[in-house]
């Protein structure tokens, strides 16, 4: 860690806080994978890490490298854009695949179609 010795303290504190916040959010999200009971509930858990968890880590990385190399280092934004675009797509694909499989097996918990069977009003 000798390369970080010349970092001023007012940068090091936000970097440390952001890294820890990102890691804690991601851990809570992954814990949800274990603790939540059904598949469709578990579908919500990873988004905790991929929304603000990854944002905090990327911000910390941008701050750290920008100060360390004393120029603007923003290529982490690429990972951010990539994650923001791809996570919803993969979760939607997996959710639809699970719905398709559950319907084929005739599970009673999933609705048979997108329209409600007995429409309100």
């Amino acid at each position: 860690m000798s390369h970080a010795a010349d970092l001023p303290l007012f940068v090091a504190i936000p970097v440390a806080l952001l890294v820890l916040a990102g890691a804690v959010l991601t851990l809570i999200g992954s814990l949800g994978l274990i603790r939540l009971k059904s598949f469709y509930e578990r579908l919500h858990a990873p988004t905790l890490g991929t929304s603000f968890g990854i944002a905090c880590t990327l911000l910390a990385s941008i701050l750290f490298f920008s100060v360390q190399q004393s120029r603007l280092v923003v290529h982490e934004v690429l990972i951010g854009i990539l994650v923001v675009i791809t996570t919803p797509v993969t979760l939607m694909l997996v959710g639809r695949a699970a719905l398709h499989r559950d319907r084929q097996e005739g599970q009673q918990e999933v609705p048979p179609s997108a329209a409600p069977t007995s429409p309100p009003e």
Partner: peptide, 13 residues
């Protein structure tokens, strides 16, 4: 809707 934790888009007719 999918990026926000707590809601997931499953199917659209």
């Amino acid at each position: 809707l999918t990026a926000a934790p707590g809601t997931a888009w499953i199917e659209f007719d």
